[in-house]
Amino acid sequence: MNNKYLYEDLLRMSGVNPKKCMRCGKCSATCPAYDEMEYHPHQFVSMVENGDIEPLLNSDSLYKCLTCFACVDRCPRGVEPAKLVEAVRLAAVRKQGANHLKADSVPDMLDDETPQQLIVSAFRKYSK
């Protein structure tokens, strides 16, 4: 496996064991953000399991997951894909100098309903 250390980090951070997955696809079946994603929840699980993590780190799909936990709730094997997505997201965020949210781009995203809190926490999470 290419990314042995990253793979183990992801498992430790998420508490997920991707080997429990039986490839039923219920996570992707239940995902409300499916159409927005390049890599779908079931692919996150199998790609991490195979150590194919780089494409995930560089994909926009990371930020399309709503963390609604529908997949966590419905996964019959208790794999909890959303936790794995979150771990990959953290791994991406922790890369030095990788700013995923720039102050300049915020005004375009705003509307009247966006709470202040969201912007603050988004900065905390997605910028370095």
């Binding site: 039923c24 696809g25 219920k26 992707s28 079946a29 239940t30 995902c31 529908a70 419905r74 019959p76």
Partner: peptide, 12 residues
């Protein structure tokens, strides 16, 4: 009989 077998689960 032309039953559509689809590999995957129903989510909701």
């Amino acid at each position: 009989y032309g039953v559509h077998y689809v590999k995957g689960m129903v989510g909701k």
